[in-house]
Simulated scan of single mutants.
Amino acid sequence: MKLSAPIHHLKRRAKAMARKERIALHEALDRVARIEGFSRWSLLAAQISKGTSASELLAKLRPGDMLLLGARPGHGKTLMGMELIAEAMKSGRQGVFLSLECVESDVLDYLNAIGGDAARFNERFTFDNSDAISSDYIVEQLSASPRGTVAVIDYLQLLDQRRENPVLAEQVRALKSFAEDKGLIFVFISQIDRSYLLSARPCPDMRDVRLPNPVDLKLFDLACFLQDGRAHIASNGV
């Protein structure tokens, strides 16, 4: 089924509707989906996706792995991060969303929008939006997390925004070591440089990751880039 506009435009429409009518984002997303001919947003998102689903992507990740999840604004990186957490929780694992960007209501709206049912997963899901989020903070908070826990970090480029935090490269190396030691899976939501918009490529790739401070991207075991419902996957930082 052909949509009336690209999916990121539909998401912006839903966000504007949520603000204007003072309704939850997941309700606005479902309203937009019904206009497009789908009963709810999760069905629309599943129908238009030409790339890898969250369940397929999660199956590629092993305890100790780190995933870079990149997209331009409005192309579904936060939604995909929440879908990965929901898939992990469905299989009995723990899910953690650490954000320097979102508030709790945003995250719960995303979880509800994909059918995650926050109440059902209450004991398995943790949301943390402390201003202190950094590699040291994450290690401290997740030190007792069971093997296989999926932790989404929102987002990579904000980890060293506070001067007292280590440089970004050091934090990523520390988190990679911690993930391998504890058997956790880290998903880093990442910004994509606006220069990508000048390219003719259907999806961003490692060349497009916005890095105001240098990072060894080969520390990531897998990368997934999203654009207009497409997903491009790269392994071993290439």
Rank of each mutant, 00 (worst) to 15 (best):
G64Q: 08
L142W: 03
K176N: 03
V107W: 15
K218C: 01
H8P: 00
L43G: 00
H26W: 13
D181G: 01
T126Q: 13
R163I: 04
E83D: 10
I138T: 13
F225W: 11
F127H: 13
G76W: 12
P166Y: 06
V150M: 10
F121H: 15
L158Q: 06
R147C: 10
S143D: 14
L44K: 03
L158W: 08
M66A: 04
E56I: 01
Q161T: 11
L184M: 00
L57K: 05
L142N: 05
P63N: 01
E123T: 14
G148L: 09
D216C: 00
V238H: 15
I7D: 04
L168P: 05
R147K: 15
M80Y: 12
S235R: 12
F127C: 05
L79I: 08
M66Y: 02
A179F: 05
M17Q: 15
V103A: 15
D154V: 09
V32E: 01
G51E: 01
F186I: 06
A14Y: 06
P214Q: 00
D216L: 00
G37V: 04
G64C: 07
K77G: 04
A46G: 14
L84K: 07
E164P: 05
R62K: 15
C224D: 06
P63D: 02
M89S: 11
G116H: 14
V96A: 14
L57T: 09
D221Q: 06
L142S: 05
N165Y: 09
L58D: 01
K15T: 06
F178P: 03
A119Q: 15
L184D: 04
P73Q: 02
I133N: 08
A24N: 13
F125H: 08
C224H: 05
K60L: 14
E104T: 08
K11S: 04
G229I: 07
K50M: 06
Q191C: 01
G64S: 04
Q227V: 02
L226N: 06
I138V: 15
G51W: 03
A59Q: 10
V32N: 02
P202W: 11
Q161A: 08
T52N: 00
L84H: 07
P146M: 04
L158T: 10
F97M: 04
D109P: 09
V152C: 11
R12E: 12
V139M: 15
E104K: 15
Y155A: 02
H75M: 10
M206V: 12
R210Y: 15
S177E: 07
L226P: 03
E87Q: 13
A200Q: 12
K50Y: 06
R72S: 04
T78Y: 09
D154K: 02
L158E: 04
F188Q: 01
P146I: 02
F127Q: 03
L25S: 08
A54Q: 03
Q157D: 04
I138H: 09
R173G: 00
S49D: 13
D106K: 14
G148S: 10
I7N: 02
R13H: 09
R207C: 00
R22V: 00
F188C: 03
K50F: 03
V32T: 01
A118L: 15
A151P: 11
I114M: 10
V32H: 06
